[in-house]
Nucleic acid binder design. Sequence first.
DNA 1: TGCCAGGCCCTCTTTAGGGCCTT
Length: 207
Amino acid sequence: MLANSIVVLDFETTGLSPDQGDRAIEIGAVKLENGIVTDRFQALMNPGRRINSFIENYTGISNTMLATALPCAEVMTDFADFIGESNLLAHNASFDSRFLTAEFSNLGRQVLGEFTCSLLVSRRIYQDAPNHKLGTLINYKNIAADGSFHRALFDAEMTAELWLIMLKDISERYGLENIPFSLIKRLTRTPKAQIAKLLTNYAAKVL
DNA sequence: TGCCAGGCCCTCTTTAGGGCCTT
């Protein structure tokens, strides 16, 4: 697995907290290499119990659909092989990171790559956006969205497209040709008021 | 019994509270 690839992922789940017993019910992901989608992963998974009507309505995933899905363990084993050592990206990564860690923990596997978060980046570079929900940002950046939000693969695809546009916008705004993953990690840890200074100084060193 | 997420981020802040995001 190439260390410089990034896997953009999204979980649909039974609820908000694996610590409260919630489980994954769908994983969707796209692999980006040099700004191009080179692979995709999508699977429903059976969490071993019924999901409530809020989740059915929110995701469009029904108990009937999950009844014939493979168990979480089988799906997540395949997904662990899919992501390998790739770095990882999600919109509000703290949420997906918790579920990925919890599901991997059940398998005795570990998350090997580093996570970063498109929500934290968008709050820093799109301060004029109405809000920073994924759907709002897709509309804000005029990204064509032909599919259903709150399904894992579609949300992962949309997050990947948003990600590439954010990188392009940062590049153009600060005159950078390449934006390494390490710079994005620094950006997400930097207060909004210091973002311009961080990127301007970085550009001055590179050029 | 009663309660039940958690991390980020702002502000009327740090001896705290509440909105935003994810399902």
